[in-house]
Design a protein around this nucleic acid. Structure first.
Length: 178
DNA sequence: CGACCGATTGACT
DNA sequence: GTCAATCGGTCGG
């Protein structure tokens, strides 16, 4: 196994969003490790009106201004969590939302950003942890690059100009339906 | 199928 | 006070 390193996360946000497809999200679960392939992502950059960091640093999005490779978790709609991977250099304020994963050695419905957080037990306690370290409760390992990647408009955005910054593995059953 | 709607709470103006 | 990077349920064709 190979951890995705600092160099990987410091790349351009859209590149990281695309290249995270196929990578393996690992979650410590007692003596076990739950492994899942990342199959759908969305990019958010600071100059994007749909990005939480668009208007600058706030208590909620503070973690987005860390160096690439940290975990940004936010609470939404009064009951859901969503998990992001911070990208680029420190203070850039950008991240990649993980929208769906495919469980490899466990079973759950993980087709949706809040569903996967629920299934893995990811809460605000995971906000700010280092995804580049195997000492964390959550980290990401290198996986197999998918055969075909599709890019499409993001989901759930209404008040902003949209970009084709949602990426998913073609024909993956876990990708949230249009 | 698609459209619509309520849940439920913290962050921000 | 308004709204949100969602989800699961209900209702109509």
């Amino acid at each position: 196994m190979t951890l995705l390193n600092k160099h990987f996360y410091l790349q351009d946000t859209v590149t990281v969003a695309r290249e995270l497809l196929g990578a393996v999200l690992c979650k410590k679960d007692g003596d076990n490790i739950l492994k899942s392939t990342i199959c759908e992502t969305e990019a958010y950059t600071q100059d994007d009106p749909a990005c939480h960091a668009y208007k600058g640093k706030t208590p909620r999005c503070d973690v987005m201004f860390k160096e690439g490779g940290f975990c940004y978790v936010y609470f939404i709609y009064g009951m859901h969590y969503c998990m992001n991977v911070v990208t680029e250099q420190k203070n850039r304020g950008c991240a990649v939302l993980i929208r769906s994963i495919e469980p490899l050695n466990w079973i759950a419905d993980t087709s949706g950003p809040s569903k996967l957080c629920r299934a893995l037990g990811i809460t605000k306690d995971f906000n700010g942890i280092d995804l580049r370290s195997i000492k964390s409760p959550l980290w990401i390992e290198k996986g197999v690059s998918p055969a075909e990647i599709v890019s499409a408009p993001r989901i759930g955005i209404s008040s902003a100009i949209d970009y084709p910054w949602r990426f998913y593995i073609k024909n993956c059953k876990w990708v949230s339906k249009k």
